[in-house]
Design a protein around this nucleic acid. Sequence first.
DNA 1: CGAATTTGACCGTC
DNA 2: GACGGTCAAATTCG
Length: 288
Amino acid sequence: MAALITRATSVALVSEMMAQGRKSAAALEALLQVQDHAGMRELTAEILRCCDRALGALHGKPAGRHKRKPARHGGAATQTKPKTRTRASSGETTRVEWKRNWDDGFMWTKYGQKHIRGSDHPRHYFRCAYALHDGGCPASRHVQRSPEHDPPLYVLTYLADHTCCRHGVAAAVVKNVKMQPPLVLDFGSAAAPCSRSPCWLNYGDTVWGETSRSQELRAEVTKVESTPSSDLLPAVPAVVAQMSSSADDARCSSPPAAWDPSAADWEYFVNNSSDYVREFFDLEDVVL
DNA sequence: CGAATTTGACCGTC
DNA sequence: GACGGTCAAATTCG
């Protein structure tokens, strides 16, 4: 009974969120006519939020954090002195910026932040939001700001493949996300040719296309580090390659065979975004 | 009030 | 002991 109610609630939420997403997509289409990039990004972020929540609901994941585990050290937590914290909300990076800059189509939970010796900026640690769901997705990523770039350049290091995408809806949605270059990042598949050693793929300042150069979208992927490839998302390397403009940026000793430096960029996405939006909201593959 | 994030403490490795 | 990675209590926000 409870399960039925939960499911009904999830379906209702998905319906609501996707309806909102449709409205936003329609507005986005209108904005594309006048090339208003700032408005486009806002709407894109809203679409992503809606779809993230829809995905969460479909997974039966209560849009929230995981349960806290008991203290690891036999009640050590109660022995440590009380901590007083101030929220770093007035800093250079707000929550909205994080989401906007580093959204890659997956849902991440931040679990830590650490100041790295020799670096002016802290490293941020994220793991897949489904890490504690469905057996536990092992995917995680580190984000660190590079000190020398203006606009700021962020290094995203991916560790392990997503396993949460092997199931039903998530896989269907990811399939669609692959059609949206600004949202796509790859890890496992792109690194496959590098075998067991860490593999680097450096996309320079072009991975997000023209937007990065206009300083309006400040996060850029410069490194992809991964465990050996799985059979997940076999087509992604080609999509990643499409976003790159220079073969010299590829540091991997054996780049993917599908590498195509002359292929599409942000302008391509703009020209084809209407199709992307329509495909993104094609729910034929989504079984409710 | 629950969700999301921060951040000091803890742990493993070198 | 230094360092990076992770945990989880504390804190803030919607």
